[in-house]
Simulated assay, not measured.
Amino acid sequence: MRHDIPANGEPLTSTALGDADEQVLRAEIARLQRENRALTIALAEMERVAERDMLTPLFNRRYFLSALHQRIARTERFGDRIALVYVDVDNLKQINDTHGHGAGDFALIEIAARLAAAMRPCDVLARIGGDEFGILLDHVSQIEAAGKMRRLKAIIEDEPCHYEGQAMQLGAAFGLAMITPGQSAEDLVGRADAAMYRNKRG
Rank of each mutant, 00 (worst) to 15 (best):
Arg52His: 09
Arg52Lys: 13
Asp53Cys: 10
Asp53Ala: 10
Met54Gln: 12
Met54His: 11
Pro57Gly: 13
Leu58Lys: 05
Phe59Leu: 15
Phe59Gly: 15
Arg61Met: 11
Arg62Asp: 09
Arg62Phe: 10
Phe64Asp: 04
Leu65Arg: 11
Leu65Pro: 04
Leu65His: 08
Leu65Val: 14
Ser66Trp: 00
Ser66His: 08
Ala67Met: 12
Ala67Lys: 13
His69Asp: 15
Gln70Met: 12
Gln70Ala: 15
Ile72Lys: 11
Ile72Gln: 12
Ile72Gly: 08
Ala73Gly: 12
Glu76Ser: 15
Glu76Cys: 12
Glu76Arg: 13
Arg77Thr: 13
Arg77Val: 13
Phe78Ser: 13
Phe78Met: 11
Gly79Phe: 00
Asp80Met: 06
Arg81Pro: 06
Ile82Ser: 04
Ile82Phe: 02
Leu84Ile: 07
Val85Asn: 03
Val85Ile: 14
Val85Ser: 03
Tyr86Asp: 03
Val89Phe: 00
Leu92His: 03
Lys93Thr: 10
Lys93Met: 08
Gln94Asn: 06
Ile95Phe: 01
Ile95Met: 03
Asp97Ser: 09
Thr98His: 09
His99Ile: 04
His99Met: 06
Gly100Gln: 01
Gly100Ala: 00
Gly102Trp: 00
Gly102Met: 06
Asp105Trp: 07
Phe106His: 04
Phe106Glu: 02
Ala107Leu: 03
Ala107Asn: 02
Ile109Trp: 03
Ile109Gly: 01
Glu110Ala: 14
Glu110His: 09
Ile111Phe: 01
Ile111Trp: 00
Ile111Cys: 00
Ala112Ile: 10
Ala112Gly: 14
Ala113Asp: 11
Ala113Lys: 15
Ala113Phe: 05
Leu115His: 01
Ala116Ser: 08
Ala118Ser: 14
Ala118Phe: 04
Ala118Asn: 14
Met119Thr: 06
Arg120His: 08
Pro121Thr: 09
Cys122Asp: 12
Cys122Lys: 13
Asp123Ser: 10
Leu125Gln: 02
Leu125Trp: 05
